[in-house]
Design a protein around this nucleic acid. Structure first.
Length: 501
RNA sequence: GGUCCUGUGGCCGAGUGGCUAGGCAGAGCUCUGCAAAAGCUUCUACAGCGGUUCGAAUCCGCUCGGGACCUCCA
């Protein structure tokens, strides 16, 4: 049984075989730090965090590279081609690097709250100007790029002609045919500099007002839209690496251009497996800047958005994303998040109780059918994950296990129904998947232990009051705590537990 | 216009041709001093029309609807 992934390049599910096992190189397109991250951005970072964690779980030694685009890819709207970062810096009267730092910090903060592991390397575009210039020089030397007016463009036409013969036409990833693209009627800035409309910039001459600029053989300017990923992936993962990930909307043109650039320089396709996550939608429409329908992560965490009726914990959002398969669209709504919040709470409480049970299970399972069934549910975690990372199905199985766990807890199912080995196995699997692979964690992780002590004291007092049938006191404790957002629950066996909203 | 994806019950979402996905919400019951939680039971489905097949949500065709990319975009 081995991992299969859907490779966008071949459009089929294929077994994952690293070039040089046990080492795996994975590159994922990171954020442009010219603004705050929104929910849509969270999807790829959580998706590939789980990929990273799962590969690690399988025993691979993964180098996970995720870049930070801080060099300001320009917008070509209207007549002015501007550096997004520099233009905004003027508005906010900040140094460009100050702005970049601010949004990088915010991004890191959000990633930490999501419990995303830090990548092995997180290179910045501004830190790799030299590498990008070297790569551009190489592409020019090989005849696949030309200088025009201080800018450098990639000759897509020539590339397509030459590499089509090698079975690698331009558009191989996104299934586009270059000839069909030429009709594009869009007016682009400096279009006349290009030999063909489909050519893309490797280096852009910086206009005088442009703040972020670097010296190059072609004058002062800044790198083009796609070259940073080619330069940095080559530098840290080599000419050919295992996995390249990112959102589906990057497939064209970004990843297509990366392939062209890298293939010219390194004479081989950069990545073997291309994984693309689908979009998060709102009312069926993609969440994105262009649609003006974004919900920023800070708004989600605080509930300060007109669409939201409450704040949502980062783990709720993580869970929400994992409840769907990464290649399908995921429709967002306040209602859907509320459902996820409740579901996660239920699952987590069952998990936490179950993982503390050390004496559970009999030498011989009292209920062989149930024992088999539950063991199978836990075994299937691996099967589902190996089938193109189907986190949704794993979670579905976990809910089925939760029913059994809760029944044992409430003594609707006898404690000896399952065998000791089965219990231990399910405990192990649930721990591995929930915490290590899915990266979920207790929402009360920040609790320093004092609260625990205080609550235990209140619980003891309440128990005593109940023993005296002093329900005035016992209800007061429960009700007052409830108004503070702490919920007490009486257990079957006279015990009490609490949960914090 | 070109390329591609998609249409599952009130909502979100899995679904490899034959087996109840799952979650949330709704209804009933059990438990409880009362709650809450939990458990059990239960109601809502596969856009429409044809076709292939012993059998289709799943394959094929058409119709209708939705979406993505083609331009910065996760």
């Amino acid at each position: 049984m081995s991992l299969k992934v859907y490779n966008s390049l071949t459009r089929e599910k294929v077994p994952f075989t690293p070039i040089n096992a046990p080492y795996v190189g994975m590159y994922v397109c990171g954020p442009t730090v010219s603004g705050e991250s929104h929910l849509g951005h969270a999807r790829p970072f959580i998706t590939f965090d789980v990929v990273f964690r799962y590969l690690t779980h399988l025993g691979y030694k993964v180098r996970y590279v995720r870049n930070i685009t801080d060099a300001g890819h320009f917008e070509e709207e209207g007549r002015e081609a501007e550096d997004k970062i520099s233009s905004k810096a003027v508005l906010e009267k900040l140094e460009p690097m100050e702005l970049v730092q601010k949004y990088t910090n915010l991004y890191h903060w959000a990633m930490d709250r999501f419990n995303n592991l830090r990548p092995s390397i997180e290179p910045t575009a501004t830190g790799h100007i030299v590498e990008q210039i070297e790569m551009i020089k190489k592409i020019i030397t090989d005849g696949y790029a030309y200088e025009a007016n201080g800018s450098v463009y990639f000759d897509v036409e020539k590339y397509n002609t030459d590499f089509s013969q090698k079975g690698q036409p331009y558009g191989i990833l996104s299934g586009r045919v270059l000839e069909d693209q030429i009709d594009s009627t869009r007016e682009l800035d400096n279009q006349e500099e290009k030999r063909n409309k489909s050519d893309f910039a490797l280096w852009k001459k910086a206009p005088p007002e442009h703040i972020m600029r670097w010296q190059s053989p072609w004058g002062e300017g800044f790198p083009g839209w796609h070259i940073e990923c080619s330069a940095m992936s080559t530098k840290y993962l080599g000419e050919e690496f295992d996995i390249h990930g990112g959102g589906m909307d990057l497939q064209f043109p970004h990843h297509e251009c990366e392939i062209a650039q890298s293939t010219v320089c390194n004479h081989k396709m950069p990545a073997r497996y291309w994984l693309h996550n689908n979009m998060i939608t709102i009312n069926g429409k993609k969440m994105g800047k262009s649609y003006n329908n974004v919900i920023k992560l800070s708004e989600l965490f605080t509930g300060t958005h007109p669409m939201l009726t409450q704040a949502y914990h980062p783990m709720t959002i993580r869970f929400f994303i994992l409840q769907s398969h990464y290649r399908g669209t995921l429709d967002f709504s306040n209602e859907a998040l509320q459902a996820s919040e409740k579901a996660l709470k239920r699952l987590w409480e069952a998990y936490q109780w179950f993982s503390k049970q050390e004496a559970l299970g009999a030498d011989v399972a009292g209920n062989a059918d149930l024992d088999n069934k539950t063991r199978q549910l836990a075994e299937e975690f691996d099967v589902f994950m190996n089938d193109d990372l189907n986190t949704a199905k794993v979670l579905a199985n976990m809910f089925e296990l939760s029913s059994v766990i809760n029944s044992i807890k409430d003594k609707h199912i006898p404690a000896n129904a399952l065998g000791r080995e089965t219990v231990a196995y399910i405990q192990k699997q649930m721990h591995a998947y929930l915490e290590e692979i899915f990266g979920l964690q207790s929402e009360q992780a920040a609790d320093n232990g004092k609260l625990e002590g205080v609550l235990q004291l209140l619980i003891d007092i309440r128990k005593e009051a109940k023993g005296r049938k002093d329900f005035m006191t016992s209800d007061k404790i429960r009700n007052e705590l409830a108004t503070l957002g702490i919920q007490l629950k009486d257990e079957k066996d006279g015990g009490m537990s609490y949960s914090i909203n």
